[in-house]
Design a protein around this nucleic acid. Structure first.
Lengths: 202, 202
DNA sequence: GTCTATAAATCGATAGAC
DNA sequence: GTCTATCGATTTATAGAC
């Protein structure tokens, strides 16, 4: 997907300082919102002028695109992993849930940005389309798990898939790096999904 | 709902009072994002000029404040209901979850806007503070339910409370008015919370 | 209550020197 | 690669006629 691995071109992280600049920009986008963040804000945060920033990126939208590509790439790499392709539907679902939380923790700013996209520009609409494609695969797996009789049909499969995605994605709203218990978070979330968030003590 | 179908008044597109204008503005804020929506966009959607819009609201932020107040009022009214104050912690939690989904369906645009607030202006920071106060009450109830031995401690109570709020709030991301099954949605979501989203078939 | 006209500031982006 | 300077468009908001 990333059009970098072409021809004889070296596959490298964006050259001399573009990498750090992207990281700074994404941080600003997260705290203030993409639309509310100006190129002036970005260059001030980076310690250079607006003009210098334009030397590394063609514009504001190019920054957004680079960030969204990084997050989406992580999601589709996860779907392609053996653990997401083999086993029962339920086993595959659990692997994906755990992987999503791991990705979210590892790439928090990029995933957060992806989940806040509204669809104002062409880049944003493209990202929304990619997200829908990912969600559709999750929904198909949920249906397969129900059809196979692996999980109880407490609610409609389509609704269960929506709630599953909502719960997993909501982690970006409160998780912060360095938080204690980060290592157990993926398994804890999977536990909540399959055993219930607030299961009755019976 | 639309205050247009009153008396013998003709149903006409353009303005009228501040009520319809607020509804139009919130709709625009939702689809494009608050920061990406200009007063020009709002007046065009309302069928009047920018100046006329300023006659009804002192500015863009006043519109946001009115909308957020409406959503927050619904949340705190819910917390004050008898069903949220009486009974076991688990019963109270279930009442609140069901009430939150009902509120969300009834006041979708206003609640959606509230959940997207970032904290750029004084009004937004005030709204975030109110949301935190609400979430704290939910977290306290979850702890109380665990302490009373009513629910199994599969995950840490603080984490369970976060996931609970995340799952409930995520409904604004996909629910749309007129959707079939809207009447059962509150109970379905509560079921997913207490019985599990994808419970193993045993 | 609505309009035209415009102020004052900020926006994304570019030109060109060093 | 960084800078100063600036363009043209857009932004929030106001003045004042009708």
């Amino acid at each position: 997907m990333t059009a970098n691995a072409e021809a004889g071109k070296r596959v490298r992280r964006p050259t001399g300082g573009a990498g750090p600049l992207l990281e700074i920009a994404v941080g600003e986008f997260i705290t203030r919102g993409y639309d509310a963040t100006s190129m002036e804000d970005l260059s001030r945060a980076a310690g250079i002028t607006k003009s210098s920033f334009y030397h590394h990126f063609t514009g504001k939208e190019a920054l957004l695109r680079a960030a969204l590509e990084r997050a989406l790439n992580g999601l589709f790499v996860l779907l392609a992993e053996p653990g997401a392709q083999e086993g029962t539907p339920t086993q595959r679902l659990r692997h994906i849930v755990v992987g999503q939380i791991r990705l979210l923790v590892a790439e928090l700013p990029y995933v957060t940005l992806l989940l806040r996209v509204r669809g104002n520009t062409e880049t944003e609409r493209w990202a929304l389309e990619q997200r829908r494609a990912f969600d559709a695969q999750i929904a198909a797996l949920v249906r397969a798990a129900v059809d196979a009789g692996e999980i109880r049909a407490g609610v409609e499969p389509a609704l269960a898939a929506r709630l599953l995605s909502g719960l997993v994605n909501s982690v970006v709203e409160w998780y912060r790096p360095g938080r204690p218990g980060a290592a157990e978070l993926p398994e804890d979330v999977a536990h909540a999904v399959f055993q219930g968030i607030l299961p009755a003590a019976s």
